[in-house]
Amino acid sequence: MPISAAAILVTKLAASVLADRLLGEARRFHPLVGFGHWAAAIEAVVRRHVGAQRAAGALAWALAVLPWVGLALWLRTVHPWAHWPVDIALLYFALGGRSLAEHAEAIAAPLEAGDLAQARSRVGWIVSRDTAALDATGVAAAGTESVLENGNDAVFGALFWFIVGGGAGALLFRLANTLDASWGYRTPRYLRFGWAAARIDDLLNLLPARLTALTYALLGRTRRALACWRSQAAAWDSPNAGPVMAAGAGALGVALGGPAIYHGRLEQRPPLGEGRAADAASIRAALGLVRHGVLLWLALAALVALVAVALPLLTGATGHA
């Protein structure tokens, strides 16, 4: 990697992470809200004229996502310096670190204060399971699982695809993840139509999820995290959420998984991690893994950039001597 490219990459990463930390997600006119309306319109048109089979869903996915990725690639070319604001803005848009922290604290604080009704209400904002009958441990477990999983979906996955493909890569990942959250359910409506959205999201998450799991393991109880990843992840329905949550739960020393109600149906989920029962502290500890993981990734990126700068200088000096 050229010296300038390495330094530029690290600078863009740091600027976008800082923007997310300071500004958070847009409170009004959020781009993903507009994208949701766009995707809903695409779905309606494709269902009406093409159908609801897998091929129709794949066409809808392409029509919903690819024009915006193409626009992002084009915007980077309109001026020699355009890649700076375009990439930083797109990665900032793709990141959801501060939003994740705000949602996590909105669950942990009332749970810690004994306000179970409020904690149930807030955890229902970020999980798809039914929360009305959850006890305090169930709320804490749901919140902890969500923070661990969304650490990949809202943070590390976006960072990975930015490193691979710049702002367009981060945008592709975020839009694909959004469509998976909208169309990827195994319900009668989306079982076939949402197949492509679910599989594409699985593919895009294949490497980021495992790097996220490794990050959690390195920052927590490493041996236990790796053991839980190895023994528990394969039993989970999602090929990517399994490693992330098993390693994360093991790193925290907390027991997650178990029965949960989705769309009125009880599901017996495999265990995740081992150790104490979840509580408000485990939600905050999971958020700590995400935050420290971001710092670790930035430090590694800076180290790579430093090596990219120093190596040619050292090689040149040796050759000159």
Rank of each mutant, 00 (worst) to 15 (best):
L159G: 08
T212L: 09
G114I: 14
M245K: 00
T222A: 11
A233H: 08
M245C: 13
D202F: 01
G143F: 09
R189T: 05
L175W: 06
D237M: 00
D130C: 09
L204A: 00
D201E: 04
F193P: 08
T137P: 12
L116Y: 08
S146G: 15
D130F: 10
L207Y: 00
V164G: 11
T212C: 01
E112I: 12
N240Y: 09
T187C: 15
A181Q: 08
R223Q: 12
L211P: 02
R174D: 07
A132E: 10
Y185S: 15
D130R: 06
T212V: 01
G114F: 10
R223M: 08
L211K: 05
A108K: 08
L214C: 13
A209Y: 02
L111M: 00
G250D: 02
L211T: 04
N152D: 15
A140C: 08
A246Q: 13
T187Y: 15
R224Y: 07
R221E: 10
T222Q: 00
A181G: 06
P188Q: 13
T215K: 03
L111P: 13
S182M: 13
M245G: 03
Y185Q: 15
F162K: 04
L171R: 06
A227G: 11
G169E: 08
R192G: 04
L134I: 05
L204N: 01
G165R: 02
G220C: 13
L214N: 14
L191E: 12
G167A: 00
D201A: 14
A213V: 11
A117Y: 11
A247L: 12
Q118T: 15
Q118F: 15
L179M: 01
Y216R: 10
I107G: 13
R192A: 03
G143P: 12
A213I: 10
A196T: 06
E149L: 08
V244D: 03
P208I: 05
L175S: 12
